[in-house]
Amino acid sequence: MNNTAIQTQTGLSSFYAKIYGFVAMGIGLSTFVSGLMLTVFQNHLVNMITGSPWRLYLIIFAELGLVLFASRAAIKNTPMALPLFLIYSLVNGYTLSFIIARYTQTTVFQALLSATVMFAVMAIIGVTVKKDLSGIGKALMGALIGIIIASVVNVFIGSGAMSYVISIVTVLIFAGLIAWDNQRIKQVYFELDGQVPTGWAVSLALNLYLDFINLFIHLLNILSRND
């Protein structure tokens, strides 16, 4: 391997490290806030669920707006890209605590471990596979839209069986997206000759963060059937 190839590989590795550093920060903040909500601020969590659930829905809607704003800021490479991503991670940790509270500690641990292992495996596949996954990625995004619509419909139907099937399909979709998003990191790096703006790195990190969180949430739903 010549010096140019070594430098390119080193630069690419540094770029992956930078992105995964952002991902780790996001997941770490979400975990920290969720942990506080489930322990120190447990009374607040219970009061929100039993007394003012409408406030939680308002926060969730605000969170959706925040992630769209953060994504747009990242793509435009504005200085607020990283702060918005971290703020979103904090807010998401808050709302995640209301989901996690529904499950046993054993189920949460199993889902977290399963999500971590699955994420790692699919990330390695995305980094090492030679085949271009762009076509598969776009198809998965289309399937994700269909799943979101099905999830909204199931809110009104309230079918446990449909919820279970949706979670299985969603896990498969996000497993594929993890591989695609990891391959995209390499593609972006080479397309921009290694001169990748921080905003792009934040955008890619946000995608991976969302992949992991959604994988974890739907694995919770699948594993909870054994409780």
Rank of each mutant, 00 (worst) to 15 (best):
S224G: 08
R55E: 15
L12E: 10
I148F: 10
M118L: 15
G194N: 05
L215I: 06
F61K: 08
G28E: 09
T4F: 13
F109N: 15
A115P: 06
G142S: 14
Y103V: 07
T170W: 01
V33C: 02
L90E: 05
M141H: 15
G21M: 07
S71T: 12
S224Y: 08
A150D: 05
F190M: 10
I27V: 15
T106H: 13
I178A: 07
G176H: 03
T107W: 06
S159G: 05
V23Q: 02
S52T: 12
L210G: 05
K131F: 12
L133A: 01
D181C: 08
G11L: 02
E191T: 14
V202M: 03
Q42Y: 13
F212V: 06
Q183C: 07
I75M: 10
L68Y: 12
G26M: 03
L38V: 04
V117Q: 07
M25W: 11
V188Q: 09
A139T: 12
T8P: 01
H44L: 13
T107F: 08
F85N: 01
T104I: 09
M122D: 04
V67C: 07
K131T: 14
S71N: 11
E63H: 09
G93M: 04
L215N: 03
T198I: 12
F22D: 00
F119Y: 12
I185M: 12
L82P: 00
L12P: 03
M80Q: 13
P53N: 00
T170F: 00
I136W: 10
F61Q: 07
R102K: 15
T198H: 08
L58R: 09
S224K: 09
F156L: 06
P197G: 07
I217Q: 01
L12I: 06
F109Y: 13
Q110N: 14
L90A: 14
L45Q: 01
R102P: 11
V46F: 10
V171W: 03
Y16K: 11
T39Y: 06
T39G: 08
P83A: 08
G28C: 08
S14G: 13
V108D: 01
N207P: 11
D132N: 10
V202T: 01
K131Q: 14
L29S: 06
A73T: 00
L208F: 10
L208N: 09
G93R: 00
M162R: 01
Y189W: 05
K130Y: 12
Y57M: 14
G11M: 03
Q42P: 07
K186N: 09
P79Y: 00
L96G: 05
S224W: 08
Y164P: 00
I147V: 13
D181Y: 05
L219I: 06
G142R: 11
L29T: 10
L204T: 09
K18M: 13
T10F: 07
F98I: 07
V169E: 05
T104L: 10
T4H: 11
N226T: 15
F32C: 10
V165S: 01
S163L: 07
K76F: 06
W200C: 14
N214D: 04
M25D: 10
K138Y: 14
R55L: 15
A115L: 11
F109V: 11
M122S: 06
N226V: 15
S163R: 03
I145Y: 07
I75K: 09
G11V: 04
W200R: 14
A161T: 00
S34F: 00
G142D: 12
D227L: 06
S30K: 00
I157R: 03
T170H: 00
Q183N: 09
A150L: 09
A201P: 03
S224D: 15
